[in-house]
Amino acid sequence: MTTRDNETKTFTIAAIPADGVGQEVVAAGRQVLDTLADVSGGAFNFDWREYDWGSDYYAQHGVMMPEDGPDQVKDADAIYFGAVGWPTVPDHVSLWGLRLRLCQGFDQWANIRPVNFLPGIQSPLRRADDTHLDWVVVRENSEGEYAGFGGRNFSGRPGQGQVATQSAVFTEVGCERILRFAFELAQTRPGKKVSSVTKSNAQQYGMVLWDEVFDRVAADYPDVETESVLVDAMSAKFILHPEDLDVVVASNLNADILSDLGSALAGSLGLAASANLNPERRYPSMFEPVHGSAPDIAGQGLCNPLGALGSAALMLDHLGLPDEAKRLQLAIEDTCRRRVLTPDVGGAATTVDVTKSVIDALA
């Protein structure tokens, strides 16, 4: 961040639209964020630096991003990411070649995924009709099941004898830092409750370690209510007793799945915002919707930009602009309340229509 004329704060943002609808929603987010800057009275602005990395880049160069890609963006104040994945590139190549390379390389170990039930959007949960529901999934984002530890061997054996191993890695340090993060987040929320999710009855090493660290950390936060729930039971709880949820903390894989379930219950994956945080701020954090690249609707102008706009609100808060983050969130709610909605949530509006509605609410 730089300051011009001792007044205007300039935030350098690395924009990586990447693949499919990621290009559309990042463009929408940039318009909305620039509108907020325009109406700030010169308090702040954005220096956008866009990078063309993704599956098209892979088609030309054989890699999802250049070797020095992380060095090119490491000094940004934040990364605004679209979506990764395209039918011409194997999913594990696109994910590990771009998104996970940035997340793990920049030690973005805390992934935050709020589950917001917005006005005007029908939830498949009957409970949502008359109950206030609001929780956040905290995902360990650096190790666990997505550590990339394993390999494939014996490919030369006849008769399909190849063996693949994929090991989940849990460290005491990794468990403790994400659990403390969850407790400190819970202390800022009205519910003041942390639900820890594992499968420690079947995974008796890594997830038992997680449970032990959870119990130890919980003792330091006596004002926060706690529970430990197996992941299958928590999946049911998301549907049967969502009013009991506040902060749900889980490993990389379990939180990934549960957060998608939460967004579907809120109405659509197109609503899902997220923040990949390096809480120590040694590296830039990355903000992205979690809906994926959606090749089936890419380029049609029908994708839902609200997940990307919610992610922009999380970015504003991270940049020290909490009032602007709240203002953007209220503009999103106003747009939903007026039923300016894309087809995935029962509307007939285009991406441009929704973006314009949010901009109108801001301006």
Rank of each mutant, 00 (worst) to 15 (best):
P90D: 13
A312I: 08
P158E: 11
A59Q: 12
W48I: 06
F46I: 08
T350F: 02
T3L: 15
V354M: 06
L341W: 05
G29E: 05
F117A: 01
R30V: 11
Q204Y: 06
I239Y: 07
I297C: 13
L265M: 09
L98Y: 11
D215F: 00
P70V: 10
T131H: 07
R180E: 08
L98H: 11
L245Y: 04
S285I: 05
G29M: 07
R4A: 13
A219M: 08
M1H: 14
M207A: 07
R216E: 14
S268Q: 09
T350H: 00
I332N: 14
F287L: 11
M315K: 15
M286D: 03
R338H: 12
G82V: 12
I13L: 14
V340F: 07
A233L: 05
W109L: 10
N304W: 11
R126M: 04
K192V: 11
L253N: 12
H241P: 00
L240S: 05
V73H: 03
W86C: 00
D47V: 02
E333L: 08
V354L: 07
Y80M: 13
D19K: 02
R282Y: 00
E145T: 12
P305A: 01
R127K: 13
A313R: 15
Y146W: 11
A348P: 00
V197E: 01
A266Q: 00
V21G: 05
N153W: 13
A18H: 08
G120N: 09
P279E: 03
D134M: 02
G270N: 07
D38F: 01
S263V: 05
A264K: 14
L321S: 10
S228T: 12
N278K: 02
L271Q: 06
G307P: 06
L261D: 01
D244P: 01
E7Y: 10
F287G: 09
D244G: 08
L185S: 09
G320E: 09
L98F: 11
V136I: 15
R30M: 14
L245E: 00
A349E: 06
R152E: 12
A294L: 10
R49H: 12
G346R: 04
L302K: 15
V354P: 07
M286A: 00
D220W: 01
V194A: 06
Y283V: 01
R327M: 14
G22I: 10
V194Y: 01
G105R: 01
V39M: 00
A272M: 08
G82H: 03
K237W: 01
Y283S: 14
H291P: 01
F44T: 02
S311K: 09
S142M: 12
C303T: 15
L265S: 02
K9C: 11
D223F: 03
G120Q: 08
P305T: 07
T2K: 15
M234P: 01
Y58W: 14
K192E: 14
Q104V: 03
Y80W: 15
V224C: 11
R327S: 13
A43W: 03
C336H: 04
A348N: 10
L245N: 09
P90G: 06
V163N: 01
T226D: 02
A76F: 10
L230E: 02
D344Q: 10
R327Q: 15
